[in-house]
Structures are given as C-alpha cells and as structure tokens.
Simulated scan of single mutants.
Amino acid sequence: MREQLKAIAAEFRGEVRWDEPMAQHTGLRVGGPADLYIEPADLPDLRWAVAKMEEASIPYTVVGAGFNLLVRDGGIRGCVISLKALDAVKPMPGARLEVEAGVFNAMLCRIAAEHCLSGVEFLCGIPGTFGGAVAMNAGAHGWETLQRVETLTTLLEGELKVRKAGELEFGYRYLKLDPREIVVGAKLRMEPAERRVIEETMSSYLHIRGKSQRVGFPSAGSFFKNPPGTQAWRLIEQAGLRGTTVGGAQVSEVHTNFLVNRGGAKAADLLALAALVKVRVKEQSGVDLEEEVRIIGEG
C-alpha cells in the first residue's frame, strides 16, 4: 500500500505529510500516526484524490479540525484527508450563505455577522469546522446545524450529490449518510438582522460557554451525548466522578462531560476513563451513556 500511496502523492496538488502524528490534529492532543496525511488544495483535488484511493482500494478517513475526534494510539492505516483548505463562504441572494466544509465555525459566524445575516450564532463557541458541525448535527442554545441547511452537498463515489433539507434524515447529534460520503458544503437559510444584535447574541453565548466549559486542558468538547430527558454531565457528577483520573486523562473538574488531557495522556487513558464513566453511570442511574466523540484508528 505504501507504494500505491507514493504514486498518488506524487500527482497530488495539495499538502502531503508522511507518518503524521494525529495528536497534532485533534483537540485532545492524542493519537498515533497516519500513514499518509493530505490536505486537498480545492474540491477538484479532493475528488481526484478520493477517486485514486478508491481505484487502488486504499482506506481513507476524512477529518475536519479534529475537535470531536479521538484517534487511538496505533494511528490510522491508509490516508487521512483533511478538508481545511475548503474554506470559502459565499453570500447569496435571499439571505443565503454557501459554506464549504473546511470553514471554521467561528469564521462562519463572523462573516454572517458582517453581512447582517442571523441564524448561526449558536455555532460561535463550538470549536471545529462547519463540515464537522453538519456531519454530527452540532447544536447549542436550542439550535442545531441542520435546521439551517437548505441544501447539502456531499461527495460519494466520485460524484457530487446535492440534497434538499427535506431529503435528509437527521436528529440529535446525528445525520444519516453513507459511510463513504463526504460533506463538502451546504447552502444555509439565514435571516436579515442588525449586526449589533447578532454580535450581542454571540457575545452572550460565548460568555455562557466560557463560564461552564473553559476547562483549561485539551479536550474534545462534550464526550457523551445527553440521554433523553437529562444531561450527561449531571449523571457523571451524580456518580461522583468529577476529577477522576486514568493516567494523564481526567474527568474535568470544571465540566464533568469533558474528558481532558492533563498532560502526557494516551488515547488508551481516555478510552479507559470513558469506559469507567459509562460503568459508574450505569451503576448509579441505570443510564447507558453513548459517546458523542468519534473514535477511530487502531489500538
């Protein structure tokens, strides 16, 4: 497979890195090496690379900014494809925005405010990229990303696929896609509003998030989904797990649904801590917690 990867990398226009530590590309700062890590220069470059990988039967994994990602210590075989360079935002008539997957959520919010378009303020404090927010239907303050999506553009088997919102199946932290389908962008339905009002709303959201979620150490954000009718942090707190550690991993002392890297943690530490949290919460409350964080790679 290495020789096949070299042949593909030789014709690739974007950035190429070999044996790249995924710890440099995740919010948790853990994760073993990817055999090949690439950043396509643009959408045609992405389509070309994916087609070549599929033609050669090489496994590939698509990532955003890595803030909702835990890569195991053995790393990732094949190719990791980052969409960071797909970072365009284009205002459209009728209070619409066309947004590529690699745009950071904070940047999307700033551009929307500059154009006096309201509707994505809730994303301002959620780290990561828009593509990741779409793929997991990220949300906050009563809003979810896919509530704003008018059309979604994905890449599957070399072809771009555009679907209207009514054709999408989604729910809490969930969007149904083919496992090989890559979110490349979307058109958002927005609402005209005064820039001052939009910025005041974002400021209030950031203040709330800063008070409750400024954990001070590398994390992946909320590690577990909220079970129906309750909140994961509350269940973890009730199980007496605040501050619990395994190796360099800890249940945050600030927000108990954040598992943090206190320094030198391995992915195995975080996985062991997550398993302990699930067992203790099940014993205490009878609730099965489900990871919100995407876990990939070899152990």
Rank of each mutant, 00 (worst) to 15 (best):
Y172M: 13
E121S: 14
E253W: 08
L177I: 04
P93E: 15
P59Q: 14
N137D: 01
E15N: 08
C79V: 15
L97D: 06
G131C: 12
V50Y: 04
A106P: 01
S212C: 00
G263H: 03
H141T: 00
R242L: 08
H141L: 11
F223I: 05
K164T: 11
V16D: 05
V184A: 01
L69A: 05
D73L: 10
S118K: 13
V281P: 13
G166R: 13
I8R: 01
A23W: 03
D35R: 00
W18M: 05
M190G: 04
H141R: 13
S212N: 09
F12P: 01
I295G: 12
R96P: 02
I8L: 08
T61D: 07
D45P: 05
R180D: 00
K266M: 14
E3I: 09
G132I: 00
G75M: 11
A34G: 11
N226F: 00
R13Q: 02
V16K: 12
I8F: 06
F104Y: 12
V16T: 15
L46R: 03
G166A: 13
L168E: 06
Q24I: 04
D269S: 03
V254K: 12
L123G: 14
V103L: 00
A239D: 06
V50P: 04
N261H: 03
A56Q: 12
A265K: 01
L36F: 11
E292Q: 12
G74D: 08
E253Q: 13
G27V: 10
E292S: 14
M1Q: 08
G263R: 11
T244A: 13
G264V: 09
S219T: 15
G132S: 07
D178V: 05
L206S: 03
A41C: 08
D178A: 13
P91E: 04
A140C: 07
N257E: 02
G94V: 09
A186N: 03
G243K: 02
L152A: 04
V287F: 08
V149W: 03
A232I: 06
F67S: 09
A88F: 08
G27C: 10
Q213G: 11
E298H: 06
E55G: 07
R110L: 14
I236L: 11
L28N: 03
V215L: 00
S219C: 15
E291N: 05
E290K: 15
E98Q: 06
A85C: 05
M1P: 02
L271M: 14
V277F: 14
M190N: 07
Y172F: 15
A7N: 02
E292G: 07
A23G: 03
V50D: 07
L155E: 09
L177S: 02
L156I: 12
L28W: 07
V99I: 02
D45L: 01
F217V: 01
E54R: 15
G139A: 09
P40A: 12
E194L: 09
A133C: 10
E283P: 02
T201Y: 06
I38D: 03
G216R: 05
